[in-house]
Write a protein that binds this DNA or RNA. Sequence first.
DNA 1: GTTCTAGAAC
DNA 2: GTTCTAGAAC
Length: 179
Amino acid sequence: MNSSSKRKNDDDSGSSTGPKKSFRGHWSQGLLQSMSDPALLVEKDEKIVIIKDKYPKAKYHFLVLPQECIPDLKSLNSSHLKLLKYMHKKGENLAAQYPSSEFRFGYHAIPSMSQIHLHVISQDFNSPCLKTKKHWNSFTTSYFIDSDMLIQQLKEEGNVKSLSEANGKQLLSEPLKCP
DNA sequence: GTTCTAGAAC
DNA sequence: GTTCTAGAAC
């Protein structure tokens, strides 16, 4: 049998104009799309949007994103301090609605998706979407940068020194550790 | 970010 | 035999 069922989803701008990669709708931009997805929306104001993580790694897992376009942590400077604190505060307010759960607030050192996003995640890690070692390590090692720490660093250094790609990979492939 | 899978490792 | 890992996805 000829199994010609090749996957050809990923990104496709609708018209297959050629072999060139179309970065419109590329998976790394998916967060920007999710920001305006009513099914995921939790809260929204003029500064930020809060959505449910599409693949929650715990019972409660939200993302706080700025309306302002900030691609990554390297783009941050002192002028963003107020915004980051606001994002953290909104995250805390949301987490307060689930008093029986413990939460952490933080950023991934090397996220795959564009647009900075603050993870608001309960610490049960009870979810069918938490499948791999990488998933676990990304929330339990120093790959997860607490919002407090990030804000403090930005305040003191004026920018955020990011992990090298190699260090990040190393953290994600560390042996699993019991919390 | 996810899914799928071949090959390595156990 | 099962588990783990790294790489491709047109």
